[in-house]
């Protein structure tokens, strides 16, 4: 197991290196230039442009730019072109904002998908099963921004309450308890919306897995032994059905960045996804590349964790 861990670690490192080159090239070679050095801006003289280029290292050969970029990134000296703030500081702040949304969303997804999926499988063909199937397909096929607007409109008009942003504006001087509760309230709708798609998908998986397991011989045996229904379903069935999901757990990590762009934009949530989106619009290369790099790291860490988890729960994998 130790040797696997070491091997896997170096493999991932090599992958990361190639990702860094490819993503760097994709961003730098894409047509268009950062808005600061847009030659169409009539306010800029040729000297201004040259000065900006030099400041952003854009006048150097690509491989030097690559080296400088990652050197600055790792030494923490990288600055956003848009407002000259250190990238890592910005990312850290935004990351924490996204993290909470992500944690709550994931909690909702996983806590809801299992009960729903399991009961649908156990009561296969029942009204509950059919209606959850229907709802799941509806949720999968309708885009989340559409739900977001409907839900915002409904909640705001019915309860006259603020749902946009991380907290109700003007709450800065309220007592801490209210501030915390207000922040939790502002997470409710975006996290539910973020979770909806996941619930629909995951509950389907759970149902399928459960169905497969309860047709196994050992379930029949357990039933024949005269064990209670719950005992059969949850101890013998559920535990075995759980196996594939352990690996999925590692793979949700990258969702921290990619999964939230739309929801964060709609809810004016100052998170990573929105920052990345705005950076792309402004062609703020340092931010785009840093987020890209973090996403790559998260994916690799995710796969690494799922490999490890798999080894833990399924001894057969250990080679």
């Amino acid at each position: 197991m130790f040797s696997f861990t070491i091997r896997s670690f170096f493999q991932k490192l090599a992958t990361l290196f190639f990702i860094s080159i490819v993503s760097f090239l994709v961003v730098y070679l894409a047509p268009g230039e950062p808005s600061q050095i847009d030659p169409l801006n009539p306010k800029f003289t040729a000297e201004d442009l040259a000065r900006f280029r030099a400041e952003f290292n854009l006048d150097k050969p690509l491989h030097v730019q690559y080296y400088l970029f990652y050197k600055n990134l790792f030494t923490g000296e990288l600055k956003s072109w848009k407002d000259n703030q250190p990238v890592l500081g910005k990312v850290k702040e935004r990351f924490m904002n996204s993290l909470w949304l992500f944690i709550i969303g994931t909690l909702i997804t996983w806590c809801l998908s299992f009960p729903v999926g399991i009961s649908a499988a156990i009561k296969r063909g029942s009204f509950f099963d059919r209606s959850t199937t229907f709802v799941a397909y509806v949720l999968i096929s309708i885009p989340s921004f559409f739900f977001a607007y409907i839900l915002i409109d409904f909640v705001v008009k019915t309860f006259s309450i603020s749902v946009i942003g991380m907290q109700t504006f003007g709450m800065q001087s309220a007592s801490p308890v209210y501030q915390v509760m207000d922040r939790i309230w502002h997470m409710v709708i975006p996290s539910i919306l973020g979770a909806l798609g996941g619930i629909a998908l995951l509950s389907r998986y759970v149902r399928a897995q459960m169905l497969e397991v309860i047709h196994q011989d050992y379930i029949r045996t357990a039933k024949a032994k005269g064990l209670s229904e719950d005992m059969v379903n949850y101890k013998h069935g559920f535990r075995n059905a759980l196996l594939p999901f352990v690996t999925m757990f590692g793979l949700i990590l990258p969702g921290l960045i990619g999964g939230s762009v739309i929801i964060e934009s709609i809810f004016a949530w100052p998170g990573m996804g929105r920052m990345g989106f705005e950076a792309i619009l402004a062609r703020d290369y340092p931010i785009i590349l840093t987020i890209n790099f973090i996403a790559a790291v998260l994916v690799l860490i995710g796969t690494f964790i799922s490999d490890l988890l798999y080894m833990v729960v399924d001894p057969r994998i250990r080679l």
Binding site: S173, A174, S175, M181, D182, W185, V188
Partner: peptide, 17 residues
């Protein structure tokens, strides 16, 4: 948390300022 957050009709909830 809904019962703690200020609404249009009760904007002072937890926040008299």
């Amino acid at each position: 948390s809904f019962f703690w957050a200020p609404t249009y009709d009760e904007q002072v909830r937890g926040n008299p300022h």
